[in-house]
Write a protein that binds this DNA or RNA. Sequence first.
DNA 1: ATTTACAATATGA
DNA 2: TCATATTGTAAAT
Length: 159
Amino acid sequence: MKLAIPTPDGEFIARYSEHGLSQLSFPGDCRTMADDSIAPANVEEWHAATIAALKEILAGRTPTALPPLDLTRGTDFQRQVWEVLRKIGPGHTKSYGEVAAAIGNPEATRAVGAACGANPVPPIIPCHRVLAAKGKLGGFSGTKGWKEKLLAREGVHLF
DNA sequence: ATTTACAATATGA
DNA sequence: TCATATTGTAAAT
C-alpha cells in the first residue's frame, strides 16, 4: 500500500504493510520498492497520523503522535539505534560515536551508520540529527541538502 | 560460507 | 592527507 503525502517541500511517499507504516521516502527518492502488499484496514487512520507527524517534523517540531511502525525488517541492533535516536531532543545532535556508546558498543560507529541507512522512516526516526564526529554532516539517504534543511529548521547551528 | 561495501572514528605513517 | 583496523548488516559472490 503506497500513498503520497503532499507537503510544501514536495511529495513524500509512505508505504504501509498490514502492521503499520513500513517506509517513508523523501521526494524523488528512488528507494521505494514495488508495491505488492495488501491494503491494511486502518490505512487511512495511519496515513492521517503520518501526515500530521511529517508536517510537525518539517516545521522543526517533534511529532506528538506517530502511526504504528512496522519494523519487522529491523534487527535488535538497529532497533537500539533507532531508540537512541528518538531520545535526542529537538535542536540537539549526537555523533555516530555517541550513539554507538549509548547502545554499549562504543566502537560500532560504522554499524550505527549502517543502521541509520537501514532506517525505513528517515524523517520520523530523526536520523538527520546524527552527525559525524565534529559536527560535520556525514551522509544521508537522499540528498544531504535535506539533512541541512531539517536541522536548520530545528534551530541546530552547524559548525 | 566468504567477501565487500557502508551515512564513522581513532590511530599511525 | 592517506592507509588501516574496528563493528554490525546487507548484498553480492
